[in-house]
Design a protein around this nucleic acid. Structure first.
Length: 503
RNA sequence: GGGCUUGUAGCUCAGCGGUAGAGCAGCGGCCUUUUAAGCCGUUGGUCGAGGGUUCAAAUCCCUCCGGGCCCA
């Protein structure tokens, strides 16, 4: 049967319902005395109930029939007889399809086979589903067939939510993760704030931007790539504990861990150092795991325990032999890396390093981190001490001015957070930005732009401050075991489907 | 961006040079305690799009458009 005629048949049924004086789309409300789960839990024979849900698995036999009705998380069986519900209700029952919403009133009873059910006295269609919902067949709690096409699942998420229980559960958990994070920071005295998405000078991260245009001011504007700079301006304004959970936009490719817009948490706290930031991260993961999943042990990781601490340069020396001394100068670092057979070691570690690649010393150090260290960080671990070139907003390490007071957290080999002691010296910050601007002039379109407004704010005096960012999508992926970022985004960005116009 | 793979009925899939198939859904019939209801009958497809090879293309080749996995 073609798509149109399936739809046409349903339209005909809708027309018939209207003839009978029951336009489902005209109904505004239906009393719900119980949820499906509640009906089964607190089952009382012969109790009068009123319930609404979607029709699934209608089974008609002669002048009686069964169907399952599902509410948001459970199903309950209904039983309708022509003689007790009446001719009108019986005809309406025969006009509903899988996926229609209906309201019922009736009495609870148990069938011969022991199924708790509603004996329907009143049956009212509340909405018609014109397009079939691709429910699978369910037996013993297992779904057969159903919706498996991932493209359809992502493009038409309502079908995924209706037809793929694991996906439904995961997406709900993702929402609960965000909610729990918010609760965590509220509970420890942070203020949740909102800062602009539309910015003249998108900064705070190394990323390409999206551009748009503000007509009223004839002004080109960018979508933000981080929350950082505005939040620190609030710290200067003596709001000493602030956080924001917000969407940021990075103009980069799509992968199983990248979507062009994603949800970022950033939190800033005055008068605290990296140790406090680490404790916040540990506490946050522990709180969220416990609150959403009821356990601190997820995916084989115990978030109840403190995370490991690892010095970046020390770890590089351990894996490659390159000392902190070797890594003070790019030429020297490359020469020593050749002597120590670092490219061969990289291949042995399952990675690849091209010593001739165009990058600065900081880039080389981060490459060494990526190849030799990240894959080994299965247990939650903070890697501490990042090179200055790649950390233009982090305080210099007094013990090694080539490095910064910055850490990243890793779990199961993947980065989950990025934190530093924020630069509060406006002179230092200006120099860092100037360095970034020269990188940008050399063609690095991810380098940080100058931001005079931000520096002006720092000149107002910012207290020593710890700051941290956590990608909440990746956090949700980690906690739910999702392998693809699209599994925890309700509406991931999808390429437009081709149309006839393209041909 | 590169490699591999995939797109066939509303859904899940088979067919891989010779008249487009199955299960479920749908439609019609029987059936007043079924539950993947059952039994009988039956409708439904520009085989992702375009081009090519061939007597003949869902099937082989090319291009394009989606999706997935791996790599960058």
């Amino acid at each position: 049967m073609s798509e149109t005629s399936l739809r046409d048949i349903r339209l005909q049924k809708l027309a018939r319902m209207r003839e009978l004086g029951h336009d489902p789309y005209s109904i505004e409300k239906w009393e719900i005395t119980d949820t499906a789960a509640g009906l089964k839990e607190k089952f009382e024979l012969d109790r009068e109930v009123s319930f609404a849900g979607r029709i699934r698995a209608p089974r008609v036999m002669g002048k009686a029939g069964f169907a399952d009705l599902t509410d948001s998380d459970e199903k309950i069986q209904i039983y309708i007889r022509k003689d007790t519900a009446g001719d009108l209700a019986w005809e309406l029952y025969n006009l509903v399809d899988i996926g229609d919403h209906v309201g019922v009133r009736g009495k609870l009873f148990v069938t011969k086979t022991g199924e708790k059910s509603i004996a329907v006295q009143e049956f009212v269609p509340l909405s018609k589903s014109l397009e079939p919902i691709p429910y699978g067949h369910e037996k013993d709690g297992q779904i057969f067939s159903g919706l498996t096409d991932q493209e359809v699942r992502y493009r038409h998420r309502h079908l995924d939510l209706l037809c793929v229980p694991e996906s439904r559960k995961r997406l709900i958990q993702r929402a609960q993760v965000v909610s729990a994070v918010r609760r965590f920071f509220d509970d420890i005295g942070y203020l949740e704030v909102e800062t602009p998405l539309l910015q003249l000078n998108a900064g705070g991260a190394a990323a390409r931007t999206f551009s748009t245009h503000y007509n009223a001011y004839e002004q080109d504007v960018k979508l933000r790539i981080s929350l950082e700079l505005y939040l620190k301006r609030l710290i200067v304004g003596d709001l000493p504990k602030v956080y924001e959970i917000g969407r940021v936009f990075r103009n980069e490719g799509v992968s199983n861990r990248h979507n062009p817009e994603f949800t970022l948490l950033e939190f800033y706290e005055a008068y605290v150092n990296l140790e406090t930031m680490m404790a916040r991260v540990e506490d946050c993961f522990r709180f969220v795991a416990q609150r959403v999943f009821g356990t601190t042990e997820l995916a084989g990781i115990d978030f109840g325990k403190p995370w490991h601490r690892l010095d970046l340069l020390g770890a590089i020396e351990q894996h490659t032999g390159l000392t902190a001394e070797d890594l003070t100068d790019k030429e020297r670092a490359i020469a020593r890396a050749r002597e120590l057979d670092v490219p061969a070691k990289a291949i042995a570690a399952g990675g690849f390093i091209d010593l001739n690649a165009d990058r600065n010393l900081g880039g080389l150090i981060e490459k060494l981190l990526e190849v030799f260290i990240e894959p080994t960080l299965q247990e939650p671990t903070f890697v501490v001490g990042y090179p200055i070139e790649t950390s233009p907003l982090a305080k210099k390490d007094p013990a090694n001015p080539r490095m910064t007071r910055r850490f990243e957290g890793y779990v199961m080999g993947r980065e989950v957070c990025n934190a530093f002691s924020e630069i509060n010296d406006p002179i230092d910050q200006r120099e860092r930005f100037e360095q970034q601007v020269s990188e940008r002039e050399r063609g690095d379109d991810e380098a940080h732009p100058m931001d005079e407004e931000f520096i002006y704010a720092l000149e107002g005096g910012m207290p020593p401050t710890g700051g941290c960012g956590i990608g909440l999508d990746r956090m949700a992926m980690l906690l739910t075991g999702a392998e693809h970022i699209r599994e925890i985004l309700l509406f991931p960005f999808m390429k437009p489907e081709s149309t006839e116009a393209d041909a």
